[in-house]
């Protein structure tokens, strides 16, 4: 398992190097969106309208922050459960989405899209919202402000810590990590 410092936006070449279990620190631009924003993005695509973010090589962080106190770009901002975005993710991956950050399992269709398009799924520490907020330097709402915490935000992050959970070959840390740990006990 390796450590990488990665500049966003991702490239397919960088994504291809990463393996499940690697630790990364991400620096650059990503977008935060969760349930309601994904539903809106899907509706835009259904209507044949353009997306409000450049989706090619983008990374989406499944998160909805608490309100920002004075002097902070955002409030607490840990990951939400990614599985709720499984219904929408393959379509976005096919359009160029390269990275996703969240927590928890993805379904078979998402894993297949990750493999087909050379994308990557990262896990951030669930419940570490205050720690992760310290890695967000700037934030602004780029779409759906009426959704409040669920608005689509552009975030500038520095050394944002995450772990590769599903790599571009489809290997999952949730399977391999548990299996290796249990094997180590024998």
């Amino acid at each position: 398992m390796s450590n990488y410092d990665i500049t966003l936006p991702l490239t397919r070449e960088v994504a291809a190097q990463l393996r499940a279990g690697d630790s990364v620190r991400l620096t650059g631009t990503l977008y935060s969106a969760r349930d309601a924003a994904h539903k809106r993005l899907n509706e835009l695509l259904d209507a044949g309208l353009p997306l409000p973010i450049p989706i090619e090589n983008a990374t989406i962080y499944y998160a909805g922050p608490t309100p920002a106190p004075e002097g902070y770009a955002v409030g607490a901002i840990g990951p939400t459960t990614s599985g709720r975005m499984d219904a929408y993710a393959p379509r976005l991956i096919a359009l160029g989405l390269c990275g996703m950050i969240g927590k928890g399992e993805r379904d078979a269709l998402v894993v297949r899209a990750i493999r087909k398009h050379g994308a990557v799924y990262f896990g951030a520490i669930g419940g570490a919202g205050a720690l992760l907020a310290e890695h967000v330097e700037d934030a602004d709402i780029v779409a759906f402000p009426e959704l409040g915490a669920e608005a689509l935000r552009r975030l500038t992050v520095r050394d944002f810590p995450a772990v590769v959970v599903i790599d571009s070959t489809g290997m999952s840390l949730y399977e391999s990590g548990r299996a290796e740990y249990l094997k180590s006990l024998k």
């Binding site: 909805g64 902070y72 570490a128 919202g129 810590p161």
Partner: peptide, 26 residues
Amino acid sequence: IARDALERIAENREISARTGLPMCQD
């Protein structure tokens, strides 16, 4: 990797107490 995650969780608690940010966004 488990110990690392638990260390981050402990660190998060300290950052929350220091900054006044909630521990979790939910």
